[in-house]
Design a protein around this nucleic acid. Structure first.
Lengths: 257, 257
DNA sequence: TTTCCTCGGTTCATTATTTGAACCAGCGTT
DNA sequence: AACGCTGGTTCAAATAATGAACCGAGGAAA
């Protein structure tokens, strides 16, 4: 086994449950000699990938990791990770797919992959989406913090079309359904003739940082189509979350009725 | 040079300016043979510390770093990093020192190191600090986002003592002064007889995530004492920020008058 | 088209690094 | 004081890393 692999496998012994480990323990767990483990740790520590607690002499992950992760995150923002996945999702479903980011209490559309079909839904980048009127918004609410959800739903709900849900109870039901299914569904709540299915992209804390939605003309959407779209959009957001965070993230909480 | 050091030095070639690098370039920069560089990259990639862009075949930092950084950050929150520094700061100045975290629009006191002196300031953990009435709050406002600052100062400013600044213009002046100096100063704005000097702890985005304050009885504080305390509290927060993030962080923006 | 350059990637005899049993010293228990 | 654990160190032996030379591909210039 290469030295580098051994060194990295040492790093990977640290977990949320056991973030600090002593030398002997570390060597046992990695199946390395104590001397070897120590040399590797020292090398890693030189680059701040590992730190040693001076008092207990136990080892833990170092600040250099935070630094490197920051560089990665800066160059690999949501868009870069999501766009190829959105593109595939659009081709796969034949529908328009759009990506929104949650910021300052609103959903901002930051990327759109248009359907290749003549009869398609048009969405503009930069558009701000109301949470109660769009599938994206419902998906967001379904996985948001309780206080975010409550704050939003206590405010008056504007009607954008005759179909917009303005009754908090109805919105609540949609949110609950979305929480159960893992994706949300909304028809003509914001624009006439548009049917959407959406799922949340989760941040490392398990709360949504954005959403992906598939938007179809209502004429092409029925229950079975929505179910298929729901499954694929869920998978797409799961993959985006995975690529962003580096591991699978579970939603922070189950909603209670 | 050890193999591990070489591997890590490869990781360290990636920067915000140059987050993706090709193999030959990487080998040149690290002063390694191409074959060596590649073997190291492959080993790193196996553990997702490095990724290769399939299209361009260029290399970039991997998602595993995000994952490891997350583990570190979870176990090394503000308190753990800050407490030893606060303790030293308290011994050095002979005054009470306290740490506050900015959360949900308020400053929450999460740790206190009491002065050893008989005549000292008492601060309780858990106390919520008003932004306009405390040095911590002023320091926070001085480096906060424009909208945070504006939102807070447009609301009515409660008086806690006869000395509390309730005039937005006066608060504004104090904030500007703090932005210039890098530390804030406040006397008896929240509790009678208490003089404080504070500086912000910055998050990786350059905006404050908390503050450290030195609180003295007014009888022990004059301009020259405040200047000294300002310098040391600034240094303390700089160090805390450094330990948390893994590198020096500049404030996100200069305030404009 | 041909030539020339650089690119990413691979091979394998040579070489230098890694390895680990045995060794400290220190600490808390028995 | 003897034991069993800890973190840390040493050096001859074993093993893994090295790098010059190679390949095929692609882009640019003659």
């Amino acid at each position: 086994m290469s030295t580098v692999r051994k060194a990295v496998s040492l790093l990977e012994l640290f977990t949320l449950e056991e973030p600090e480990i002593g030398l002997s323990d570390l060597a046992r767990k990695a199946d390395l000699d104590k001397a070897t483990a120590r040399r590797l740790l020292v090398a890693l520590a030189e680059h701040r990938l590992i730190e040693q607690e001076p008092a207990s002499r136990r080892y833990r992950l170092g600040a250099g990791l935070t630094r490197l992760a920051r560089i990665r995150d800066a160059q690999l923002p949501l868009t870069r990770v999501a766009v190829p996945i959105l593109r595939e999702l659009s081709q796969q479903t034949g529908e328009t797919v759009h990506l929104s980011e949650y910021s300052a209490g609103a959903l901002l559309t930051i990327h759109v992959e248009l359907s290749a079909k003549a009869n398609r839904v048009n969405v503009n980048v930069g558009q701000i989406l109301p949470l109660h009127g769009t599938a994206s918004g419902i998906a967001l609410l379904a996985f948001a913090r309780d206080d975010v959800r409550r704050a939003y739903m206590e405010a008056p709900l504007t009607a954008f079309t005759p179909h917009t849900m303005t009754d908090a109870d109805k919105v609540w039901q949609a949110v609950q359904l979305a929480a159960e299914r893992g994706y949300s569904r909304s028809a003509q709540g914001y624009e006439e003739g548009v049917h959407s299915v959406a799922a949340p992209i989760l941040g490392s804390d398990g709360y949504p940082i954005g959403t992906v939605a598939i938007a179809s003309p209502v004429s092409r959407a029925d229950d079975s189509v929505a179910a298929v779209q729901g499954a694929v959009v869920r998978e797409a957001t799961r993959l985006i979350t995975l690529r962003l965070i580096g591991e699978a993230v579970e939603p922070a909480k189950q909603m209670q009725g």
